[in-house]
Design a protein around this nucleic acid. Structure first.
Lengths: 111, 111
DNA sequence: GAGACATATCGTAGATCGACGATAGGCAAT
DNA sequence: ATTGCCTATCGTCGATCTACGATATGTCTC
C-alpha cells in the first residue's frame, strides 16, 4: 500500500478546484441510498421489480422475517417513495414507484 | 389512499412468478448502498469525483466534522472498496476506485 | 354485529451508527 | 533522537436500526 513520492506525483492534482455538492442534495441522495442499505429491503425491491406488484402477504411469506419486521421495512421503502402501497380490500398491494426508482438510478448514474 | 376493487384489478398479477434474488447478492448490494447512505460519505465521494484525488486533510477542511469522524467515514468507504487511500509521505491521498464505482452503478442500473 | 383475516403500530431489547476528544502511530525535517 | 505534522484508532455516549411478539386497526363475509 505504501507509495513512493514518484508515484504520488500523478496522484494529487492540487490545481483542481474543490467543490462540495449541495448539502440538501447529499441528504436527499443519502436517504434514497439508505432505503437500499439493507438486504431485506433490496430483496423486497427486487421482488417487486420482478412482478409488477405484489400482495404484502406474499412478501412476508418469501422473507425469513416476522410479519411486523417486513411491515417495518415496507414502511421505510414507502417513506422514501421507492414503493407504493395500495389498499385492496383487506389486503395491501405493493408496487414499485417507477418515478422514484428512475430518480434514484439517475442520481447514482450521474454521480 | 383507499382504492376500489376495480382499481385493484390492474394492480396484482398473481400469474407472475415470485423469485427472490440471491441472498449473497442482496447483502453485497446492501453493503455498497450503505456506503452511500450518509450525507457526509456522499459528499466525500462527490468531492473525490470532482478531483481525480484529494489529500485527507483537504477533505477534513471542507467538511463540518471532526477529523476523527471524517477518518471513520473514509474507513467505511475504503472497506466497501469505493475509495482507495495511498500513503504519500506523512499524508494520505484518497481517490475513487473507478472499478468499484462502476460496479455500484451497474448494480443499481440493473436493478 | 361477530368472526376471520390481513396489515400496521406499539413496546422492547440488543446491536450498530455517528459524533467527538484523546491518544497512538507513521513520516519528514531538523 | 526529537520535534512537528498528518492520519488512524480507541473509548464513550446518545441516537437510531433491526428484530420480535403482542396488540390495534381495518375490511370483508356471514
Amino acid at each position: 500500500m505504501v507509495r513512493t513520492n514518484a508515484d504520488a506525483q500523478k496522484c494529487c492534482n492540487t490545481d483542481e478546484k474543490l467543490s462540495l455538492p449541495d448539502v440538501a442534495w447529499a441528504e436527499d441522495m443519502a436517504k434514497l441510498s439508505w432505503a437500499l442499505a439493507h438486504p431485506a429491503r433490496i430483496r423486497i425491491v427486487r421482488l417487486l421489480l420482478n412482478r409488477t406488484s405484489c400482495m404484502c402477504g406474499e412478501i412476508v411469506e418469501e422473507m425469513p422475517l416476522a410479519q411486523s419486521t417486513v411491515s417495518q421495512h415496507l414502511k421505510i421503502l414507502k417513506e422514501t417513495g421507492l414503493v407504493q402501497g395500495e389498499i385492496d380490500g383487506p389486503r395491501v398491494c405493493y408496487c414499485i414507484n417507477e418515478e422514484a426508482m428512475a430518480k434514484l438510478k439517475k442520481l447514482i448514474a450521474d454521480l
